Simulated scan of single mutants.
Amino acid sequence: MAPRKQQEIFDATLRLVAERGYDGLTVEGVAERSGVNKTTIYRWWPSKAALLGAALVESDVLGFDSPDTGSLRGDLVALVEGVRRLLTEPPGSDIAVAALGAAVRHPELDARRFFADRFAREREIFERAVGRGELKASADPMLIVDLLAGAVWMRSVFRGLRVDDDFATEAVSALLDGI
């Protein structure tokens, strides 16, 4: 399948899940919105769960580039800022909350691939920091990411509070400098 058409299918999938939730997402709806036949979609993805899982990882809408600012602190601030934008600015916020929230209720939607893909990219931040002597090799990168990204999720999604522009800097400082 042509990469452009694949992105159109992923875009339609993510926008539909944002609008209708996982239960309202259908392969027929994705086919109609993306202008392809539903048999084409089923040829590549055997179910709506497989399609949404692929869209979460492969879509340009939720794209992610690992920051490289030259310092661990700068990289973590940029990472937290990226999570903040993802969870607070449309269309990413609508998509992330709907799709990843559905993963909790629907085990057939394997969101682990989404998080594994993100963490594989984030790992570079910690490898560079160890190489520069900013971080002990024994530090747990996943714990650090979970603490920081979890803080954004908690504040923006679960508590429904505004995440201020200085939140990323404050969260990273609290983690790296201690409370």
Score class of each variant (00 low, 15 high):
S66Q: 12
D164Y: 02
L161Y: 08
P46L: 01
G35I: 12
D166C: 01
R128V: 07
L16G: 01
K48C: 08
D140C: 03
F167P: 01
E58F: 01
A18L: 09
L109Q: 05
A98L: 08
D165Q: 12
F126G: 07
L52I: 07
E19M: 04
R84E: 05
A174E: 10
L100Q: 05
L14G: 09
V145T: 14
D166M: 01
L16Y: 00
F10M: 04
L14E: 10
G92H: 06
D164H: 13
A99Y: 12
L148N: 02
I41K: 06
G160P: 12
D75N: 15
V157Q: 10
A149S: 14
F115W: 15
D23F: 00
A171C: 07
T88D: 11
D75P: 12
A49M: 01
V83D: 04
E127P: 03
R43W: 11
W153D: 02
E124N: 04
G74R: 06
G101F: 06
L76P: 00
M1D: 08
F64E: 01
I95S: 12
I125W: 09
V157P: 11
L79T: 09
F10L: 03
D164E: 15
V36C: 13
K136P: 11
E58M: 05
D164G: 14
P141K: 05
R73Y: 12
T13H: 07
S93L: 03
S173N: 13
P107Y: 12
F119T: 00
R118G: 12
D11G: 08
Q7I: 03
A129K: 09
I41Y: 09
G92I: 00
G35A: 11
R113W: 03
M142I: 11
A171G: 06
G101S: 08
V30Y: 05
D140P: 03
F167K: 03
G150Y: 12
G82M: 07
L135S: 02
P91W: 07
I125V: 14
G101V: 06
L72D: 10
F158V: 15
G133M: 08
A151I: 04
M154F: 13
P46H: 13
P46G: 14
V163N: 05
T13G: 11
F115T: 09
D75Y: 09
A103M: 05
A55F: 10
V30K: 06
D140F: 02
L51S: 07
R73Q: 13
M1P: 13
I179D: 13
R155M: 10
D166F: 02
V104A: 15
V172E: 04
S47K: 08
V97I: 15
K5W: 00
S47A: 11
L87W: 14
P141C: 05
M1K: 07
I41E: 09
P90F: 00
S34L: 10
P67I: 11
E58S: 13
I179N: 04
W153Q: 07
G82H: 13
V57M: 00
V17D: 07
A111V: 14
M1A: 14
I144Q: 07
D110T: 01
V80W: 03
D68Y: 05
R43K: 14
D146Y: 04
R113Y: 02
L86D: 14
G24E: 07
T40W: 03
T26V: 10
L62H: 04
I95W: 13
T39P: 00
A137Y: 02
R33I: 05
P3S: 14
F119I: 00
